[in-house]
Amino acid sequence: MALFLKRVAFIAALIALWDLFVRFGEIPTYVFPAPLEVGKNLWTNLVSGSLPLAILVSMKRLFIGYGLSVLAGVPLGIALGRIPALSWSVGTLIVGLQALPSICWLPLALLWFGLSENAILFVVLLGALMSIVTATEDAIRTVPPNTLRAARMMGARGHVLYFRVLLPAAFPGILTGLKLGWIFAWRALMAGELLFVAGGIGQYLHTGRELNDMAQVLAAMVSIIALGLAFDRLILGRIEQQVRARWGLDRS
């Protein structure tokens, strides 16, 4: 809790500094508005319902795209970790594709799906997929061989071995991949929304630019940061922390 207060104090100080900077630096509002302006914009858009709607639209895209990515990525990662023939073939491909920023899939997605919701879902899915696959593969591969041997000697085979030993053993590593995937999905979504798709927070940011409304641009950026942090730290981060503590990974 003390840490939390310290963080809040730090952010408050930062905002105060920003305010002083704008006030005494005589910087025009269209270059860098005061925090109050940004707050006002946030508030108007919040009460008018346009910002909550944008958040809702973005979140829906994120959950669907990311959800699909998890559904595809985890099984694929497990297969890559267990089947050597897949590892050097598909695995190599995945590593290669990782070098491609997810937004580069957008032109392809537009040609395939047109200017539609599916195009953005596709970009989000691919944005998260590679990191989920590679982390899962790695987590499966680094399960201690003797843990598996002991399990097989106790009679664990087939799906029992997978679901009661291999997956729980790899779970903390998979979770790290899911967390990383979440961040990538979020970035892919923002890039996609900013570039073309209607609705969502990216669009809110984009409109700010079109109207030359710097306050809205900053307000949108602040919302993106806040949402990203909230999910990453408060939800996924918490789960990861609890799992790591239960698995005994944070000691030693």
Binding site: N146, R149, M153, R246, W247
Partner: peptide
């Protein structure tokens, strides 16, 4: 037949 290794190979979860 059961095995024991140098490390206990207990399941941490």
């Amino acid at each position: 037949r059961t095995v024991m290794f140098q490390e206990a190979t207990l399941f941490p979860w």
